[in-house]
């Protein structure tokens, strides 16, 4: 039996080979076949989750909610000191300098990463902008968000702060950050599907010890993770409650 590993599609392309190597390491540890399935966007990954085609996943905070509550996935580990924050950016040469400069009907470039979208909308509240008042420009990737801003197709864009910080200098200098969230409590996590529940304790032990081996540390370094920390169901539930609280007013 071969299982499928998925990784939230918000990692930068440079990390792709790192996740392939992580997958190889994972197969050795669990002594089972695991296929690293690359999803081209958030929607494609959600379809795979809904179709039960994901067995192990490094999930973003929004997807954790669906995976744990609807699909019975079990939290295993989270990266140490790597909280997810969102940033609102605009074109460097544009006339917008602070959030209240924005009109309520501002055009927002955003991906389908719902966690980043929800936090981004909260950051626009001081300008009385709501999902109903704003215009949106849907983008597949954060690079597309950056291009939309640079080309003047949107007033502001939402990005994962980590993704913004990893933009090339050429792109980054054409953008201006307006505000970045400081929540400190939400993060990606590795979850295991219920069909693999018997491997939970072993996987948690392998992951939390990973940085203590030379090979494991090298893989983690390449992924920008210092080490894994154990994560239990209640911590996942807390994060899910928090994501529900951040969801826009209907």
């Amino acid at each position: 039996m071969t299982y499928n590993l998925a990784v939230s599609p918000d990692f930068k392309p440079d990390l792709l080979s790192g996740w392939f190597i992580f997958n190889t390491w994972l197969q050795h540890q669990l002594d089972t076949g695991i296929h690293f399935e690359i999803h081209q966007g958030f929607d494609e990954q959600l379809e795979a989750i809904d179709a039960d085609k994901v067995d192990i996943i490094y999930a973003n905070p929004y997807d954790i909610s669906r995976l744990v509550r609807d699909k019975g996935f079990i939290p295993v580990a989270k990266p140490h000191a790597k909280p997810d924050e969102a940033i609102v950016v605009t074109a460097a040469e544009g006339g917008i300098n602070v959030i209240p400069d924005l009109d309520v009907s501002a055009t927002i470039a955003k991906t389908h990463a719902r966690d980043v979208d929800n936090i981004g909308m909260i950051l626009l509240e001081p300008a009385d902008i709501t999902p109903q008042s704003a215009q949106t420009l849907e983008c597949d990737t954060y690079i597309c968000v950056a291009k939309a801003l640079i080309n003047g197709k949107a007033d502001v864009g939402f990005m994962l702060t980590e993704a913004f910080n990893e933009l090339s200098p050429l792109v980054a200098k054409q953008l201006k950050p307006l505000v970045s969230s400081q929540i400190q409590l939400i993060h990606h996590a590795i979850l295991l599907g219920p069909q693999l529940a018997e491997h939970h304790d072993a996987l948690a032990a392998f992951l939390t010890d990973m940085h203590n081996t030379e090979k494991g540390k090298k893989i983690l370094d390449d992924l920008g993770i210092s080490h894994w920390e154990p994560m239990d169901k209640e911590e996942a539930e807390f994060m899910i409650d928090l994501m529900d609280t951040l969801a826009p007013k209907e």
Partner: peptide
């Protein structure tokens, strides 16, 4: 500006989560 939700576990309210942030000055 605050949002609060009940934390429901197995159908029972166990507590509450709240997020507060910068409000609109006009509001």
């Amino acid at each position: 500006y605050a949002t609060a939700i009940p934390n429901i576990r197995e159908g029972v309210v166990q507590g509450y989560t709240s997020v507060r942030r910068e409000p609109s000055k006009t509001k």
